[in-house]
Design a protein around this nucleic acid. Structure first.
Lengths: 341, 341
DNA sequence: AATTTTTACGCAATCGTTTCCGAAATTCGT
DNA sequence: ACGAATTTCGGAAACGATTGCGTAAAAATT
């Protein structure tokens, strides 16, 4: 770390530190000539003000924290990409924390962040989170917080999501219209906002088409092997589903693998559709019909909102609860025309 | 941000700030009784020392920066995952910066980081980086820096990579052994360390099998459409390749798409193999043979090394240049037995 | 009992920047 | 030309935690 300080610059130029500081922030109470002299030396010595001293004094860290439940998930990666983009534009730094769907870790991180290390937080809660005290405690400190995707509706904080229920409805409806009547819905256990919204979209579609009695809801956990086992038993029971709708990208991969293992043909024997942001989904065998979430946009929008909060700007009324639509891409795993063998 | 400070704790307990500070760091010169009193109040008030004040005084930020060229790439995501894991264990925070393969952005980030904001840097350089002054200038400041994957060999900084040349050799050899003689190698343009190492592995295999005259090297850039066009023309030239070996995951996806478009069958008409960390590669149509890099391990190992440097611990001699082997997974896109139609 | 050592704590400087007050020096208004 | 307003800058006190140094009191040593 360079040990050249504001004070040294000041000495060198026979100025006071305050003048140098003001020059650097282009204060109107410094003459142009002095500013130029300061900037010249600063540039020459490649001086950078110490961010910790600055943060301490100004009580601003120019840093935000992004808390995500997992990183090996294209959705969160794209969100992060959007966030980083906006943060960079605003001159902010991005701290990343991964909870690995662990509630305790989430609590610890939020607790730790109460120190003033960051000016704001963006979070998608862990699947194991049912209690929100750690979040309310944080918000009560007055530090801006924005939820994205997996939100906590009851809290007074902006939420940026996609239209999960609508998207799930459309996906289910699509499956119904292509002839499916026994559609299984695979979702993450716990009571995440997205899970319940997606489930209700699924159920609503079944209801509208009089198929509510056929509902098959399977709640899977994070353990890959357990999920695999649940999917297997789904195919081994007497009343097999004729379609699978997975609410989580990862589950679609597991489902494909199980189908391969059990030699079940997609889409002939079972159709498939999934929430997924995998760019490679179109290369799957068969290509996977997917609900693509506007991940990048969610990242950008929620970051935008966070910075408005940080800058104490008024939020537009529409920015309290932002919903960006997903879109459905139909591919071979759930073809519109039934493939006849 | 909580406005409760060390000083207030001290007043409340009728102690001096120094005593409180020492109590919190478990100094031996504080009686157990006092420590207990301090800790009790600290716990009760949920006090957290201001990190900026602490960083300023101790000249330690407890933060590292991770600079990656792109994030929508499974390899870097897994590396990041490993890094975050180790950082968390060491009580460190992780700042993430994405260069988007942009040299100037990389320069700017490194310049900005010369302020003492972080205690160390982990970086994989951008493909457009040919000049390393920004890196040497940084290292000369005495701040630890570790390279991973895309390294700069000539610099005196630890490097953690995989055995690119060996892996590329084996992949090429595999293609040759399954009957291919016109193997095209698709790599990223620019002179990245990984590109040249992978290329040399490819060339070495061709050489050993007397196929050097058949070498086909295509350098692609980041523009997706340009890459697509280059791949198309590869298939449209008179002397078509009978195998494609892509050094970058993204290129394999584009290649698959082009093959679909041109109705070229993999592996019947052209075999494929790629460097890739996509978990879903096994679900491709056909499933993609891949060189899987130990991304998570690279992340963990390079973070480990960085923290040794930060703690001024001696590096083991083996930690100056760490090479973690990749492994080849053969799938349907380059079957061992030739599929006869 | 006198001395040395140890224990347990306080004082005050320090990290580097920012900003509230002044206060010269200059310009302006009339 | 003389007070008022403006411009331009410096002094010094923050911000909050850490730490070198000093020192009473208690304990140990001779």
């Amino acid at each position: 770390m360079s040990n050249i300080t504001l004070k040294k610059i000041a000495e060198e130029l026979k100025l006071s530190p305050s003048t140098v500081s003001r020059s650097l922030r282009d204060s109107h109470e410094i003459s142009q000539e002095t500013k130029d002299r300061v900037r010249a030396l600063v540039a020459k010595l490649d001086f950078q003000p110490n961010p910790h001293a600055s943060s301490l004094r100004k009580n601003k860290s120019k840093t935000i924290a992004v808390i995500i439940p997992e990183i090996e998930n294209n959705f969160f990666v794209q969100v992060l990409n959007g966030i980083e983009e906006i943060a960079q534009k605003n001159g902010y730094h991005v701290l990343i924390y991964i909870t690995h769907e662990n509630y305790q870790r989430e609590v610890d991180i939020l607790h730790m962040l109460r120190s003033g290390r960051v000016d704001g937080i963006m979070i998608s809660v862990a699947s194991s989170t049912t209690n929100f005290e750690h979040l309310t405690a944080y918000v009560e400190l007055g530090v801006p917080l924005v939820f994205f995707d997996r939100v906590c509706e009851i809290m007074d904080a902006p939420c940026v999501t996609t239209d999960d229920a609508q998207a799930a409805f459309e996906a289910t409806e699509h499956l119904i219209k292509t002839g499916c009547s026994k559609i299984a819905f695979l979702s993450l256990d716990g009571n995440l906002s997205i899970s319940s919204r997606r489930r209700s979209g699924y159920l609503e579609a079944l209801k509208q088409y009089g198929l509510l009695n056929n509902k098959i809801i399977v709640e899977c956990c994070l353990d890959d092997e357990a999920t695999r086992q649940k999917i297997r038993s789904l195919f081994l029971r007497e009343n097999k589903p004729d379609a699978i709708f997975t609410a989580i990208e990862k589950f679609s991969i597991t489902t494909y693998e199980v189908c391969k293992e059990l030699q079940i043909k997609i889409p002939e024997q079972v159709k498939m559709i999934s929430f997924s942001n995998l760019t490679a989904a179109s290369l799957f065998n068969p290509s996977l019909s997917a609900i693509i979430q506007p991940a990048y946009g969610i990242g950008r929008e929620s970051a935008d909102i966070l910075f408005r909060l940080i800058d104490r700007k008024k939020l537009l009324p529409t920015q309290k609860k932002v919903i960006i639509p997903s879109h459905l891409v139909i591919r071979e795993s759930s073809p519109v025309q039934q493939i006849v063998l």
